[in-house]
């Protein structure tokens, strides 16, 4: 099966005030039709930057992007802006963490969905309105017809996120990018939205990339996971395998340090010492080595390349040198 998304050696560098910031370094992955990939990692690891690159949302004058991104057979990085606007929202769509910031506050929810539908499908106002109504019902917003006329601020966080999902899915995209869509929500609402997304994905046969820092969320939604650290994917594979038998010491450390039920309350948590590095240089060596309990001299040398096509790999000399 040809993948819907193919990313090869993606590098994203921002022009910071004090020099370049290497936010994403040599990231490669692909996404099959109907598949859900979870990008898992802590703040600043490059997971959101990777996502935004897939829709080319970075400000062009401050960002250097190199590598290859193929979306549904098209080369994203060489695309003209007119082709790009056709792609965004139609082929590939995105849901953000904070729906309040993603909606335009001066237009109603209905207007914003209608605008997207008319723009991409060229249908009449009435048809687009009908579609908007269907979408709101589909994401189970109560009294949907009334909610079409609501402004974003008139809705609760959970409802706004549902409306955001309705907007993102209004043109039946093949790929949905979800950037921490449930992080800002309360626990009982988070699970509603997660289950809704899973259900919609099945119904519409979409592929999904889900950015999260929450191991539990990744387990719940994803087929495959890619763990990121300091701008790179450091481990990749089926979610069950990666999270039950992590290979990379960072993944191991992250899982051990995450508080989960059934932990011995009287034992200290196995924390990872130190903090992630700043991304002020390109790191060919292992960025995790300074915090790694298994670090050896060879870890400060450039790491051998990994086979990104493999079903399961990790970027650690313990696994690549063998």
């Amino acid at each position: 099966m040809t993948p819907l998304i193919e990313v090869k050696k993606l590098n994203v560098t921002f022009q910071g005030e004090e020099g370049p910031i290497y936010a994403v370094q040599d990231v490669s992955f692909d996404l099959a039709p109907g598949e859900t990939l979870a990008l898992l990692g802590e703040s600043g690891c490059g997971k959101s930057v990777t996502m935004k690159s897939l829709m080319r949302l970075h400000p062009e004058h401050k960002t250097q992007i190199s590598g290859q991104i193929q979306v549904a057979g098209q080369d994203l990085l060489s695309m003209k802006s007119s082709a790009l606007s056709k792609l965004r929202g139609k082929t590939i769509s995105m849901v953000f963490q904070e729906p309040m910031l993603a909606f335009d506050p001066v237009f109603t929810i209905g207007d914003q969905i209608i605008e997207a539908v008319r723009r991409h499908e060229g249908c009449s106002q009435a048809d687009a309105r009908q579609r908007a109504l269907e979408m709101l019902e589909r994401v189970r917003i109560p009294s949907a017809a009334k909610r079409l006329k609501a402004y974003p601020h008139e809705m609760s966080g959970g409802m706004r996120q549902r409306a955001m999902i309705a907007l993102a899915l209004a043109c039946r995209p093949q790929i949905l990018l979800a950037d921490e869509p449930t992080t800002a929500l309360d626990a009982t609402v988070q699970i509603q939205v997660l289950l809704l997304l899973k259900e919609l994905q099945r119904e519409l046969g979409m592929s999904m990339i889900f950015v999260t820092h929450d191991v539990g969320v990744a387990i719940e939604v994803a087929d495959r996971t890619a763990v990121m650290y300091a701008g790179r994917i450091i481990e990749q594979g089926p979610v069950q395998e990666v999270l039950s038998h992590p290979q990379h010491p960072y993944t191991q450390g992250l899982l051990a340090a995450t508080v989960h039920p059934g932990m011995d309350r009287h034992q200290p948590l196995p924390a990872i010492p130190g903090s992630p590095p700043q991304l002020l240089r390109r790191m060919e060596d292992c960025a995790f080595a300074p915090r790694c309990p298994h670090a050896q001299e060879a870890c400060s040398l450039p790491l051998p390349a990994v086979d990104h096509q493999a079903a399961r790999w990790s970027r650690c000399i313990a696994h690549t040198s063998a």
Partner: peptide
């Protein structure tokens, strides 16, 4: 409503309606 932290244990949720 807290997702399980261990793989292979997707659970049956008690999903509350509404906010």
């Amino acid at each position: 409503s807290v997702p399980a932290q261990t793989p292979g244990t997707r659970k049956d949720y008690i999903v509350l309606e509404g906010d």
